[in-house]
Nucleic acid binder design. Structure first.
Length: 570
RNA sequence: UGUCCCGUGGUGUAAUUGGCAACACGUCUGACUCUGGAUCAGAAGAGUUCAGGUUCGAGCCCUGACGGGACAACCA
């Protein structure tokens, strides 16, 4: 009996954060007499990344917490940078993440007519003017953060003249940059954003939605708050760098005759160690071919993470775990890796895969005998059932599961030692065959103990190690791609002397083309996730796989305490 | 030399709105184990940037310092 938790209907019941405090306060005072309404407002100028995922989870999550709704709105006010390709990929990524904007898909460009009317209203109120200074002149007149700006010589044009000029700007009479519409606020404001910011600029380019209808386009600061207002957004959540823009956001809504004034709230964007998030830099990685496109499995893009094998749930849980605050910080990628492991551990079927094979011969096993061994698909999930694994005299095992001269704490195979072959027998290493030239081990000869078959009554004998294997004659040969962190330093942008590309991890991708997998894996399909026992989680690559010939990507390794011991040298 | 924001274990978030700091990741033990995975049990680790003040009592309020960040696109 624990029904003591009291809950206001309009109060959240998930862990607190500063945004919820603000919303709770609004609900208490009745600032908005409507449900919580948020929006996710990407500019369609690139692919979404894990940082956007945080924002998506936040916006949709907060709304859901309060029984509200969320819009998807493309902030498409700069046609020069935007493209339909991005509006499509963005929608795909949000859906894949598991969020639904239902019928609330909007574009800032839907409001271009209204924006123009608002601009006219501003001009008529004497709150905006057309400036004919060049961009360069304007920059000089803007001053610096510590010095006030100076007023433009065009600042006091009459309303009539401004109206006329604005109309002719719209009509296409002027070239790009000839004139610009500015808000008339305060050139000596300590907040640079208030020094007569631009509202409309001339851009004679086609827009991916409105075509050539417009040649003047609104600026973000003008368009964003108005879009929010028109859509009835209550809480407009954005990142910290817009903090100084809030007075301007509010100014437009105060000056203009709008029915509704949303609250802008800023939070700290996601920073991940060993990861780059800047769109410009991600673009460089793609353009200069450091990676294999926006969806390269090493990219922090949602499409990259998807191809890497990350699940939507793992990303959502990650976003939930890292929380939200105003303090800027860096999240360790290890947490993202934890999130996938955690999800995949519960859901991914286990399979046997030998990535770096060396042949193992069981000398006392009958030449042509084949046994079917029972293997559990997922010990975490009884529903997942069992499967049969063919076992025979010649097997492949992982090269690094054998050492001729093992260090302390090495529990695996070595001359004279016993290990268990998972789901099969205990074997003992009797001999090693080497290439006379290179000295490389080419075959390991073992004997098996027939009494120790997995599942049999006498199987109980304990040995120190268990290793995985694949029957040589049944093995499915496949390509496996081992991905690791793209950068070898925690903060690739932290060194002023060097380019971030100087820190690319040369081992971030290893392609292995002679991997021996259990036969059933030949049927694996895109979207399947597996745990290769003792190695890590792998998925079927969506780009290089062919029917019947899947290529596998390593999503993340298993936690590996042996690697840690080996590395520490003890 | 301006304005705004931020400052809690290694990292990230909490702290019933003023009642002697909790959770997660990471780290380290140990148990268990046919995955050196998972699981289980436990440990170490902050007295909340600093200094004053208000208060019976401050991480929460006030003042000042210090530290970090944002702002000078006709980008978003």
């Amino acid at each position: 009996m624990s029904e003591e938790i009291k809950n206001n209907d309009n109060e959240s019941n998930t862990p607190g954060n500063f945004i919820k405090e603000i919303i709770d306060e609004h609900n208490k005072t009745g600032r908005f007499n409507k449900e919580v309404h948020t929006r996710f407002p990407p500019e369609p100028n690139g692919y979404l990344h894990i940082g956007h995922a945080k924002s998506i989870c936040l916006n949709f999550g907060i709304a859901k917490d309060y029984n509200g709704v969320t819009n998807l709105r493309f902030d498409d006010t700069n046609p020069a940078k935007e493209d339909i390709e991005y509006v499509n990929s963005i929608q795909e990524d949000i859906k894949w993440l598991g969020f639904d904007w239902e019928d609330r898909l909007f574009y800032a460009s839907d409001y271009y007519d209204k924006f123009y009317e608002f601009a006219v209203e501003l001009v008529k109120k004497g709150k905006a003017y057309v400036d004919s200074s060049s961009a360069d002149e304007m920059r000089k007149m803007r001053g610096t953060p510590t010095e006030p700006g100076t007023e433009s010589p065009y600042r006091n044009r009459s309303v009539e003249e401004n109206l006329d000029l604005l109309e002719r700007m719209k009509a296409g009479e002027f070239e790009d940059g000839a004139h610009i519409l500015r808000a008339k606020i305060n050139m000596s404001s300590p907040n640079m954003n208030m020094r007569d910011p631009a509202i409309y600029r001339i851009r004679k380019v086609d827009h991916h939605r409105t075509g050539d209808k417009w040649c003047i386009y609104p600026m973000y600061d003008f368009a964003h708050g108005l879009s929010d207002s028109l859509e009835g957004i209550t809480h407009s959540i954005c990142t910290l760098e817009f903090e100084n823009h809030r007075p301007l956001y509010d100014w437009f809504l105060d000056e203009l005759d709008v029915p509704h004034h949303p609250q802008q709230i800023e939070f700290a964007r996601l920073n991940l160690s060993y990861t780059i998030m800047s769109k410009r830099k991600l673009l460089k990685l793609v353009e200069d071919k450091y990676v294999d496109g926006w969806d390269d499995p090493r990219m922090p893009t949602i499409s990259g993470l998807r191809r890497r094998g990350y699940t939507p749930a793992s990303l959502r849980n990650f976003a939930e775990e890292v929380g939200v605050a105003k303090r800027d910080g860096v999240i360790d990628v290890a947490r993202l890796e934890f999130a996938v492991r955690n999800d995949l551990n519960a859901t991914a079927n286990r399979v046997m895969a030998v990535l770096d094979p060396v042949k193992l011969v069981i000398t006392n096993y009958p030449d042509d005998q084949i046994e079917e061994m029972d293997a559990v698909n997922n010990p975490e999930d009884p529903e997942a059932g069992k499967r049969k694994l063919p076992f025979s005299k010649e097997l492949y095992i992982e090269r690094n599961d054998f050492m001729e001269d093992p260090p302390r704490k090495f529990f695996r195979l070595a001359p004279g030692r016993e290990v268990r072959l998972r789901y099969a027998y205990i074997i003992k290493c009797e001999d090693v065959v080497k290439d006379p030239e290179t000295g490389e081990v080419t075959e390991i000869h073992c004997t098996y103990d027939p009494e120790t078959k997995s599942g049999s009554p006498n199987a109980g004998r304990k040995v120190k190690g268990t290793i995985h294997w694949v029957s040589a004659k049944h093995a499915f040969n496949a390509e496996v791609r081992l991905y690791d962190r793209l950068f070898e330093v925690s903060d690739p942008s932290g060194d002023k002397e060097k380019e971030f590309t100087d820190f690319i991890n040369p081992e971030s991708l290893k392609v292995l083309d002679n991997c021996k997998l259990e036969p059933g894996l030949s049927n694996a399909e895109v979207g399947d996730n597996f745990q290769f026992e003792r190695l890590g989680y792998f998925c079927v690559d969506s780009k290089y796989s062919e029917k019947g010939k899947p290529v596998f990507n390593r999503t993340v390794t298993l936690r590996d305490t042996w690697a840690k011991i080996a590395k520490s040298g003890k």
